[in-house]
Amino acid sequence: DWEDIVRFLRKLFELGEEVVIGDWHNHHREEIKRLIEWLEKHF
């Protein structure tokens, strides 16, 4: 279910905002944000 995936990604992203998950999070933050925005537009 796409909504569950979007919710999971958003939760992960919000957690990442508070607890910076090292370089991985910083590197992928923009991609995650773009992916969430893309999914919201399409689903």
Rank of each mutant, 00 (worst) to 15 (best):
K11N: 04
W38R: 03
E31I: 15
E3F: 10
W24A: 08
L39G: 01
L35N: 01
D1Y: 14
I32R: 02
E31M: 14
L35H: 01
H42W: 15
R7L: 03
L35R: 01
K41E: 06
L9E: 00
L15P: 01
E31A: 12
W2A: 01
E40L: 15
D1Q: 08
K41Q: 07
V6N: 02
D1K: 10
H25E: 08
F43A: 07
F8P: 00
R10G: 01
K11I: 11
K41A: 07
W2G: 01
L15G: 02
H42E: 06
H25D: 11
R7F: 12
R7M: 04
W2I: 05
D1R: 12
R34F: 07
E31Q: 11
D4P: 09
R34A: 07
V20M: 10
V19P: 04
I32L: 11
R10L: 13
W38D: 02
R29E: 06
E3C: 13
E40S: 13
D1N: 09
R34E: 05
L12D: 00
K33W: 13
E17K: 14
G16S: 11
D4V: 12
E18A: 14
L15N: 02
E3Q: 11
D23S: 06
H27Q: 07
L15V: 04
D23L: 10
L15D: 02
E17M: 15
E30A: 10
L9C: 04
F13N: 00
E40W: 15
E37L: 11
E30S: 05
E3I: 08
H25N: 12
D23Y: 07
L9T: 00
I36W: 10
E3D: 11
F13M: 05
L9M: 02
V6C: 13
G22F: 03
W38F: 08
E37P: 01
G22S: 04
H42K: 13
E18G: 09
V19L: 13
D4F: 14
F43M: 04
H28M: 14
H42V: 12
G16L: 15
K33G: 05
I5P: 00
L12V: 04
K11E: 03
W24D: 07
D1I: 14
E31H: 11
D23K: 04
R29I: 12
R29H: 10
D23G: 10
R29Y: 13
L15F: 12
L9P: 00
E37N: 05
F13R: 02
R34T: 04
R34H: 09
D23M: 07
E17G: 12
V20W: 12
L35D: 00
V6H: 07
L35A: 04
D23C: 14
R29P: 05
I21N: 10
L39V: 07
I21F: 11
E3R: 12
V20P: 09
H27F: 14
E14A: 12
I36N: 01
E31D: 09
I5A: 02
W2T: 01
I32S: 01
W2F: 07
D1L: 15
L39M: 03
W2E: 01
I5M: 05
H27R: 05
F13T: 01
K33R: 13
W24P: 04
K41N: 05
L9W: 04
R34S: 08
G22T: 06
V6L: 13
E30T: 10
I5F: 14
E18Q: 14
I21W: 11
V20G: 09
E17A: 15
K11H: 05
F13E: 00
H28N: 04
E37V: 10
I32W: 12
D1F: 15
F8R: 03
K11V: 07
E37G: 11
E30C: 13
